[in-house]
């Protein structure tokens, strides 16, 4: 209740254009935004860039925030949307990379973060975690979003349904499929590495 009241006051101050309120908002939500972004994008640089874009969007769109959902839910939604947009853009770019490289020899390097090491994972678990992150990156984007929000951010299915604007049963279904697909991929990885 206290947090809701604080959020309400913060939003009111932001709508008045308070610089202090904006600074407080960034301080309060930067970890949430960055962690969600890094979990989905598996790149610290891109997560940092998306974090900036999320707060710019929050600053520019706060007048349209009606308070129908929690402020954190709204910020999660913006983060997931921005991260998925970047993922789609990268996919498109990857698809057309051979054609683009024909015309642009100085083009930027396409980075595929296959060996991503999450900074929050213990050192002895880094190798295992990078295999799991590589498998997560192969899931359909909605499954990735639901799995990341649940597993890395600890959101409940109800909270995820509010972030993704869907029903709880859809989130349950997404999570079930995500887990099944992940297990299937990781099992295949086990058999291939063992063979």
């Amino acid at each position: 209740m206290q947090a809701l009241l604080e959020d309400h006051l913060l939003v009111e101050d932001l709508k008045q254009g308070s610089e202090e309120a904006f600074k407080a908002l960034v301080e309060l939500y930067q970890r949430q935004v960055y962690n969600t972004a890094i979990g989905l994008l598996r790149s610290p640089e891109e997560a940092d860039d998306i974090s900036q874009e999320v707060f710019i969007e929050v600053y520019q769109s706060i007048a349209r925030f009606k308070g129908e959902s929690k402020l954190s839910t709204w910020i999660y939604r913006i983060t997931v949307t921005k991260a998925l947009e970047l993922m789609r853009y990268k996919k498109r770019k990857k698809r057309f990379a051979p054609i683009i490289s024909l015309f642009n020899s100085d083009g930027e390097q396409m980075v595929d973060p296959a060996d991503f090491a999450h900074p929050g994972v213990k050192l002895e678990q880094q190798e295992n975690a990078s295999v799991v992150f590589a498998a997560i990156s192969k899931l359909p984007e909605k499954q990735q979003a639901a799995f990341t929000l649940h597993k890395l951010e600890g959101l409940s299915y109800q909270e995820i349904s509010q972030v993704m604007k869907t029903s709880i049963s859809s989130v349950e279904s997404l999570m079930h499929r995500a887990k099944t697909n992940l297990k299937k991929r990781l099992k295949n990885y086990y058999y291939v590495t063992k063979a």
């Binding site: 970890r31 962690n35 799991v132």
Partner: peptide
Amino acid sequence: SLDEIKSAHPQ
């Protein structure tokens, strides 16, 4: 390996 994951700090 993801169970005890800690939150990462932004720049």
